[in-house]
Nucleic acid binder design. Structure first.
Lengths: 142, 142
DNA sequence: CTGCATGCAAAGTGTTTGCAGCGAC
DNA sequence: GTCGCTGCAAACACTTTGCATGCAG
């Protein structure tokens, strides 16, 4: 099987409670947390864990292909345990970041691929707007 | 007319040689420079200009809608005087960033807009791959 | 028991801010 | 002449690194 435990061991990484806990946070959320959010999440359970460990672990998880790093135009990165390429949207009112998995972007990618002389290896799509809650609260203008 | 001079004055900003020079760099390039690249470009002509001035000016230019800020997954931002929303691609071999203006993304945006409950106000599309030069030089694997 | 991982603190990087002197108007 | 702008340096926020101690294997 390809559990995180196996993947870590196969690559010569040690399996530590911290690493398992950080990965578990990412797998169990849809909020696309930043390193600090993960750190805060784990504070109650791992009060001695440091932010540096979160960063170091995330880097390994990215290397293993278990996590992808997002840049939704904030000061910090966010992380997603769903590693296939799918569009994301960030609410300009409350800052939440959601997946946009409903739409298939293959066709769009294909048309770009056909139009450019680059050899494309990946892509990131970011949308910005106002979530339903913020629309009601009139946190948006225009 | 809507020259940068007029736009600055209309908003109560002063027209300084530094501001004009920074904007000129952005208008005359397709390389999507970072703040530091702009700073380096101007060193020969404005040897006393500081990086802080570049940042402050760029912020004003963004406010005026003359410049957009890109995040192509590097440590620093890049800037583009072409302000309409168009996809960008960064070469993983040499780091160059190009426009992908050939393809119309309206349809893709529309399909996302119809599928989400967000009110979309903007989007950014980033592609990654290898430019023709780097493909020849085999800077890519696989 | 060995060597990698953790956690702390310090360093690093790009960007922002404060402020005295300067220049646009 | 006024007030905003520049340029310097310091501050900032996030992330990375160095290293002594700790723990997985």
């Amino acid at each position: 099987m390809d559990s995180i435990t196996t993947l870590l061991r196969n690559r010569g990484f040690k399996v530590t409670p911290q690493r398992l806990a950080i990965y578990k946070v990412l797998v169990n959320t849809r909020s696309h947390p930043s390193a600090e959010m993960i750190f805060n999440d784990l504070q109650p359970v791992y009060p001695t864990m440091s932010l540096a460990t979160v960063y170091k672990t995330i880097e390994i998880l990215q290397e293993l292909g278990l996590v992808q790093r997002l840049n939704v135009g904030e000061d910090s990165f966010r992380y997603d345990a769903i590693v296939d390429s799918h569009p994301h949207i960030r609410c300009l009112g409350c800052g939440r970041v959601d997946d946009l998995e409903e739409v298939d972007s293959q066709e769009f990618v294909k048309s770009i691929d056909e139009a450019t002389s680059y050899k494309i290896t990946g892509q990131q799509f970011y949308f910005f707007g106002y979530c339903p809650v913020c629309q009601k609260q009139k946190k948006h203008q225009n």
